[in-house]
């Protein structure tokens, strides 16, 4: 057999080069991406870091783990901790001293509640407890109508909180704080601050599906998929570079069934019952705590009023999906996301 021609030799070289570049392509990806997972806040926290040395990454993740466990303990809605102490004082009509961090967290929650016209209302801890959601395994029966009505007439609101320097008190002793619709966002903001303080500027912190991303994935933006609220797979995709949080509230997240009826955990503070007709709301905003509170408020507001509440909360990128799988988007959101499925979509000015 004659020797291969120069043409064939070139072909062999091309094949080998292609193989090596394809291999190095996947190797580069895994080398520079540092992924780890921890259990905190009652959920799984995924941390992705781009191009960070192992020792620095390990230290940062350790610090985040410590901080998230502190927050989980301090602000747990139904276990002993700092929030429990604050709620005890409020129920007894007593004043309580707050440190800087506690003061900042509660004042931010109070401001967001006011902007949302009290649809984000962390003062209704009693109502959420009445519905049985202050439990690891919520179950029925749902509360009696008169018990709900009694709590509603007492109108516990964040505006009942009176701050005087570092002292907190309330004239309404039915106020019981539950920061569940806000704490995850607050915790993610804290985790990102820890990373930035250590000089890490390209990262994603994802806590049980809600996330904040900073920087980039090397030469390209971070790619985010938004999961379909009713079936497996992705409903929308978007890219992030810089500093943005993506939060989704859905009526499928925590719920229980009682006598064939489904009751989810996002309680409308106006009616005292779980909000209806909205499947999920996704909000993009730089601050994770704001995105978290807004996603809850817009879900409660529903397709009729979500635009007004978004505007008042300073949210210009939001997407609402109703029970009929109609997708409502703000114009800024529509420019960002790429819908992956053939769904009816409506773009509405806020």
């Amino acid at each position: 057999m004659r020797k291969p021609s120069p043409l064939a030799i070139i072909l062999i070289i091309c094949l080998i080069t292609g193989l090596i570049s394809a291999c190095s392509r996947s190797d580069n990806r895994t080398e520079k991406l540092h992924q780890s997972q921890l259990l905190a806040l009652g959920t799984l926290i995924d941390i992705s870091l781009w191009d960070v040395e192992d020792t620095l990454a390990s230290q940062a993740i350790h610090d985040i783990d410590t901080r998230l466990h502190e927050l989980h303990h301090d602000w747990h809605s139904w276990q002993a901790g700092r929030l429990h102490d604050i709620n005890t004082a409020l129920a007894q009509g007593q004043a309580i001293e707050l440190d800087d961090v506690e003061l900042a967290l509660l004042q931010q929650a109070q401001q967001l509640a006011a902007q949302s016209q009290q649809l984000f209302n962390p003062a209704i801890g009693r109502l959420i407890s009445l519905w049985g959601f202050h439990s690891d395994n919520p179950e029925g029966p749902p509360p009696e109508a008169h018990a709900i009505q009694k709590l509603l007439t007492q109108q516990p609101r964040m505006s009942d909180l009176i701050f005087s320097n570092h002292t907190l008190r309330s004239n309404n002793n039915t106020v019981q704080l539950d920061v569940g619709a806000f704490a995850k966002g607050y915790a993610i903001d804290q985790a990102i601050a820890i990373l930035q303080n250590q000089g890490i500027n390209n990262a994603i912190v994802n806590a049980g599906g809600d996330l904040r991303a900073i920087g980039r994935h090397g030469q390209r933006p971070w790619r985010i998929g938004i999961r379909h609220p009713q079936q497996a797979g992705i409903i929308a995709a978007l890219e992030i570079q810089g500093n943005e949080s993506v939060f989704t509230s859905g009526n499928y997240e925590r719920f229980y069934q009682y006598k064939g009826q489904r009751y989810h955990h996002i309680i409308d503070p106006r009616s005292g019952y779980p909000g209806s007709n909205t499947l999920s709301v996704t909000v993009i905003h730089a601050n994770a705590a704001t995105a978290d509170a807004a996603a809850t408020a817009l879900l409660i507001a529903g397709p009729q009023h979500w635009r007004d509440i978004a505007r008042q909360m300073g949210i210009d990128q939001a997407m609402l999906i109703d029970q009929q799988l109609t997708v409502y988007m703000t114009p800024a959101m529509a420019q960002r996301v790429q819908l992956k499925q053939n769904l009816k979509s409506i773009i509405e000015e806020t």
Binding site: N206, R223, I224, G225, R227
Partner: peptide, 29 residues
């Protein structure tokens, strides 16, 4: 399918599907 996920939170174990060239760096839900 890519990005599908299941977890046993009490036992702290999760499974995530990843393609060789994952379409997404993170999934929001």
């Amino acid at each position: 399918r890519d990005a599908e996920f299941a977890a046993c939170l009490p036992n702290l174990i999760s499974i995530t599907i990843a393609g060789r060239n994952p379409r997404f760096d993170s999934i929001n839900f």
